[in-house]
Amino acid sequence: MNRIANILGMIGLAVLGVALVLFLQNFMAGQVQVPAQFFTFTTIFLGIFIEAAPFLLLGTLASGLVEVFFKKESLQRLMPRNRFLGALAGGLLGFVFPVCECGVVPLTRRLFHKGMVPAMGVAFLLASPVLNPIVLVSTYAAYGWGPVLWLRMGLSFAVAVATGLVFALEEQPARLLRPMQLEPIRGGSVDLSVPMLQPSFAARLRSALKIAGDEFFEMGRYLIIGSMMAALLQTVVPQNALLALGSGPLLSVLVLMVLAVLLSICSTVDAFVSLAFVGTFTTGSILSFLVFGPMVDIKSVMLYLQVFRRRTVSYMVLLPMLMIILASVFINLNLGI
């Protein structure tokens, strides 16, 4: 494991250590006061983990199945080699693989190893948490057939494709990905896709599940660290102060974007959550919450860091951020909605 992960792991364990000591004290002395915030923290952390774990599992299962049941050559034939088309296709691939932001990371990595061009992969990664049937339905349920729905879909698509095209100059996905992670996966894919004798269906399913289990382990630790950080911030940072901050065309956008990162909620339900801001916040800011949140939040950035080089991740965070701020402020100032 690399150094950052080690440091984060240690921080996590330190937090846990302190928590355990507090807890044991409480236990021994009967009713010594544990700060109530500790219970709040634990409840929020477990809440995010319990909610996100099935989605991450879904992603790793999809990844395992793609690895075992799709040959590299046949997938390459299906995927566009043209970068521009690739980015466009990547933006819409979520309708084929409906995975949300936790599941999309392992699946994207797998597709890279099956020969997907970088522009397409990045567009897929950023777009699919919003551009998929489930989120379409949940956003419709919350906002009906109106500007919020189609602006959310359109803006997510545009931002994801544009960011994907920035990576179009790069031919080799390996240069975006973290090098260490390439080895074991390649090794794994060689002995499965070039079988000496055709393995039985059950054997293939077994290896798909094995890959999914390994991947859940690998990604899970980032999900856990991300959930802990989100829970800690939620326990410490006063949200009501943040929400009192603003209704200005720019400030409201910045506030809701920070909140989206802080809350780290799944894209399948964030539309319902954002209803709470309707009326007090500008439409542009609500859009920024709905478009930026699924692309960038604490736990998804943690997962990105596990797969991509740090510089790639910073582009994947900063470019969408700037584009979304610009678009949302433009909407606030120019469209009377």
Binding site: G12, T43, L46, E218, I224
Partner: peptide, 23 residues
């Protein structure tokens, strides 16, 4: 052992800390 330790965190907190709803 770090990956193992981190993946055990939800188990440790989940089983040792009494379940309490937000208050």
């Amino acid at each position: 052992v770090w990956p193992l330790a981190i993946l055990s965190l939800p188990l440790v907190l989940g089983f040792l800390v009494p379940a309490r709803p937000l208050d």
